[in-house]
Amino acid sequence: MTPASPTGAIRYDLQLIADMVPPGARVLDVGCGDGELLAHLSITKQIDGRGIELSMAGVRAAVGRGVAVIQGDADTDLRDYPDGAFDYAILSQTLQATEHPRDVLANLLRIADRAIVSFPNFGHWRSRLQLLTLGKMPVSEYLPHQWWNTPNIHFCTIRDFLLLCRDMGIVVERALALDEHGRPRSISGVGPLANVLGAQGVFVLRRSTRA
């Protein structure tokens, strides 16, 4: 087992999410992979973290880092958590791979006060261009799968996502549009430009019923 470097840098988009989490928060990372983000947060911000991960290799690596992680998935396992069990639920690059994204979102905001959700934006200009010029489903370095083998079964655009949030009465507290390198663009994360220039979107959400 190679222990994770305790203070080492983490992937840029993960760092961006890490910056949104306040110290000492109770955090659930859904689709936590090898637990990199949770391990980083527990060292740098002393959070109380839990993870859910589908792959056995990911779970083993996360457990080896001292992260509490269960093997499971967003569609079936979120419903087991009681209401308000967490301050933050993180769903990074996973929403588009869930079977019932709407239920997943609803569950995230049931079990946590806030959700941080990131996903690849299907409305990005490169995707639009591929569809327009080639007439084919977009394939890129960031969306490397063909239509017939992609785990991403529920792609959406940033605009689609914002419409769903409005429909569900979810408040978007923060929104960032990231470029292809995972760096935030200096444009509004909820505006029409974000839907064209954002390779992915990152959103901090909360229930509208809460002040």
Partner: peptide
């Protein structure tokens, strides 16, 4: 989980 315990789980 319902008891908010720190739990890890692996099916080998």
């Amino acid at each position: 989980n319902a008891a908010a315990a720190r739990v890890s789980f692996v099916e080998v």
